Structure formats: C-alpha cells, structure tokens
Amino acid sequence: MIWLPTAQKLNEAADILKRGGIGAIPTETVYGLAADALNPIAVARIFEAKNRPVFNPLIVHMPDAGLLPLISTIDLSRIDSLIHRFWPGPLTLVVPKRSVVPGITTGDRESVAVRVPAHPIARHLIAAAGGFLAAPSANPSNYLSPTRADHVEHQLSDRIDFILDGGPCRVGVESTIVSLLGPVPVLLRHGGLSTDALRQFLPDLEERHAPSAHHQPLAPGQLAVHYSPSTPLAFWEGQPVTGSETGFISWSHLPEDPAVRVFRLSEHQDLTEAAARLFSILHDLDRAGLKRIVVERVPETGLGRAIMDRLKRAVAGHVHV
C-alpha cells in the first residue's frame, strides 16, 4: 500500500487521481488525502473515507500560484506580495471561487480555500494529476493528523488507493488559514506559518474564533473538537503524574515516577521542533495501550499558538482522564 515516490509510482498515482481515485500524499505540513478537486464524485470519496461532515470545506492544492485565476476571481494584485513571500508554504487563503469549483469541495460556499504546498513530491503530483487536488489531512475525521506514511497506513489503508511516502513532514501541523473575502484579512486557523510573520504583510489581520455548533465553518480545522487521539487526553495542571499506564508529553517538566512513558516535544524548548514532533508523539502514545495521556502546555507565542490550538481541540474530545 505504501509506495516510494519513484517516477513510475508518481505516474501511477497521477493516473489514479485523474480517473477519480483517492490517495495519500506528503506535504510539508501533514499527509493529505488527495482527489481531483474539480471532480465532485472523487471529492465525495474523500468525505466517505474520512467520515467527514460534508459542510466542512476542503483546501485545494495547486503546483504554483499561476493557476489561481482558473479557480478564483480574486484580484491578484491584492495578494501578490503575500503569495510571493509565503508560497510555496504552509499558508492557505480563502478567496472567492469560480463556478468550476464544485460545491462539495467548498462546503457549498462561494469561496474556496487554496494553497501551494512546499513539498516537491506534492507539487509534481498535483501538476501531473491536472493542477488542482483537494487534500484534507489523511486521517479519520477528528482524529490525529498523520505526519508519516505509516500513520496513514494504520488509519486509512483499506479505504484509499495508494499512499506515497515522502518521509516525515517537516512542519508537522496544518497550514495557517487566512480569509481574504472581506475588506480586512481574517485569521481563521493558526498553523505552520506564525501570525507574527503574517502581520509583516497583513498588519490589519484580525482573528476570528471558532464557529459555534450552529454555524458552518469557513475553513477546515475550525471545529471545537478535532485532532483527538483515542486514548483519553488532558492537560497537566501541576498534579503528580504516575504509573506505567500513563503517557506524558513534556515541554519542560519531567515526572518523578520513572514508570511514566515520557516523550519530550523538544529537548531545547524549540517550538519549531515541537510542532514537527507533536502529532508523531501523539500517534506513538495512542498506539502504546495506555490508559491516559497527559500533556504539558507550551508557550503561546509563534508556532506555540498552532501547537496549543491543536492540543486544546484534542483535549476537548475528552472530558476527563
């Protein structure tokens, strides 16, 4: 099921996608579950494989920014400096769509989320498959995002047509999402590009809280419960952490009990390294047969905002441990 990205396998994968198939592809953020974004039947297979709510929009991935006018009516002069600086990379923009993009791809909205990934295998495959791939994270809906090919194989291997192995994801958390639908840019999701970097180009950037249960999300990753492991997960509140059936994700604190299964996000408190390791650590602990996972908070600065966004949504899926 897992394919090495040889020229032959890349051609096979492109042919499968052009015929309406679905498969997992590597990006710099997380592995994506890809289908032809302009083929509604193929996109429907993504929702079926992930058991994803159909109102939750998908991100359309392109090999380069030059294709954007084919699927969006946005004035390119408005975003030229932004995409020149951050594409390819972990930035998704929500822009007005053209009618060629089917409603199932956009959650039936008149907007589309788009980005150019910074992974050469992804961009090569997207171009070979027609130029536009919808690719949400390659995992069952609300579960941990995959940052290695074996994560995908463990979760979705019997539901998809192929898994391309591009190695561990360099960024490790999903893209930052910004809406450009109104006069003021709005941050919809923290991600692999820090808001500090964005504000250098978007000084008027505003932040929008997650939609309530009665409102549909404008972009992926806005649901209150998301990114959750199967094992009960909670934040560390300073209490003793004990027992061989407990996993602990450490930022700076180390439990005194040597029986606790401990993973450090970063030995040197490096938020970039912590973001890259987060989902991989959660996957490993979730497969370890533990009764509970306890995680230490990280500073909410830079990429720490994206890490804490993912952890808060993951913890929300578990009332207590």
Results as ranks from 00 to 15, higher is better:
Ser72Lys: 02
Thr301Asn: 03
Ser230Asn: 09
Pro136Cys: 06
Leu91Asn: 03
Gly182Glu: 15
Thr105Arg: 01
Gly243Cys: 13
Arg189Thr: 01
Pro168Lys: 04
Leu285Lys: 12
Arg45Glu: 14
Ile41Tyr: 11
Ala34Glu: 04
Gly304Tyr: 00
Leu17Phe: 10
Asn51Glu: 15
Ala128Ser: 15
Ser212Asn: 12
His268Gln: 15
Ala128Lys: 15
Asp196Thr: 13
Thr105Ala: 07
Thr105Asp: 10
Val186Lys: 05
Gln222Ser: 09
Thr231Met: 03
Val101Phe: 14
Leu76His: 10
Leu33Arg: 01
Val178Asn: 07
His119Phe: 04
Thr301Ile: 11
Leu58Val: 01
Leu188Ala: 09
Leu303Glu: 01
Ala197Lys: 14
Gln222Lys: 10
Val60Trp: 00
Ile293Met: 15
Gly192Gln: 06
Pro258Arg: 03
His214Pro: 00
Ile160Glu: 09
Leu187Ile: 05
Ile2Met: 08
Ser230Glu: 09
Tyr227Asn: 13
Thr176Tyr: 00
Ala288Met: 13
Pro185Phe: 12
Ile74Ser: 04
Leu285Ser: 11
Ile79Thr: 08
Tyr143Asn: 07
Leu10Thr: 05
Arg52Phe: 08
Gln200Trp: 01
Val100Pro: 02
Ala224Thr: 09
Arg305Asn: 02
Tyr143Ile: 00
Thr92Lys: 04
Asn39Met: 08
Pro26Lys: 08
Thr176Gln: 08
His151Gln: 06
Pro220Ala: 02
Val171Lys: 04
His226Ile: 06
Phe235Lys: 04
Phe248Gln: 08
Val294Phe: 07
Lys9Cys: 09
Gly21Val: 03
Thr242Ser: 15
Gly66Gln: 13
Asp204Glu: 15
Val241Ser: 09
Thr92Glu: 12
Arg261Ile: 13
Gln269Asp: 10
Leu125Gln: 05
Ile104Gly: 02
Ser212Arg: 12
